[in-house]
Amino acid sequence: MFGEFDTSVIFDNLHFLLEGMQTTLILTVIAICGGLVLGTLLALARLAPFKPLSFIAGSYVNFFRSMPLILVIFWFYFLVPHIVGRPVGGFYSVLVAFVMFEAAYYCEIMRAGIQSVRKGQIYAGQALGLTYTQNMRYVVLPQAFRNMVPILMTQAIILFQDTSLVYVVGVKDFLVSADLVANRENRILEMFTTVALVYFVICLSGSLLVRRLQRKFAQ
C-alpha cells in the first residue's frame, strides 16, 4: 500500500515539520527550567528540618511519581480550566502539566545531589556561622549542582522524548506535525521512520555528550 519510499514528502513539508520541532524544543526548555526551579524548592522543602513541610513535599513527589504522564496531561488539559475558571490553551495546559510532573523527578535528583555533598562541608558552613539558607545557597547547592550535571542532562533527554506524549491532546509538536503530514499525504512509512531517526540522532548525541561530561567530572 505504501509503494516506494518517497523522501520528497519530507522536503516538501520541511517548514511545517520544523515548526513542530520548534514547539517540541520550546516545550522541553521551558519544562526543564520550570521543573528545575520547582524541583529545587521541593527538594529544599523535603530536606527542611520543619516536618509538615517535608511531608507535603514528599507527598507531592510520590503522588506525581505514581501517575502515568499521559494521565497527568489529560488531567491538566481538561480540568485545569475548571479550577482556574478561565480558558487555558492546549499548549499552556501541557506546559503546566510538564512543569508539575518533571518537578517531582527533578526534586528527587536534587535531593540526591544535596545529600551527596559531604556532611563535613555543611558542618564547616555551620561552624562559620552561616544560617541554614546561607549554607544552602553558598555551600551546598553550588556543589550539588556540579555533581548532578550529568544526571540532569539525562533527565533532559528523557523529557525531550516525553514531550511527544502531547500527541494525545493534539498539541502540534514534532510528532503531531509529522502525523498530520503522514495522513494528508498518505505517507505513514516515510514520516514515522523520519521522526524516529530524528529523535534517535538528537538523543544519541545528547547521551554521548553526557557520557563525555561524566568522564570529565570523574577525573
Partner: peptide, 10 residues
C-alpha cells in the same frame, strides 16, 4: 542505544 533514544510513543 536504539531503544533508549527513540521516544516510546514513536
Amino acid at each position: 542505544e536504539t531503544f533508549r533514544n527513540i521516544p516510546l510513543l514513536v
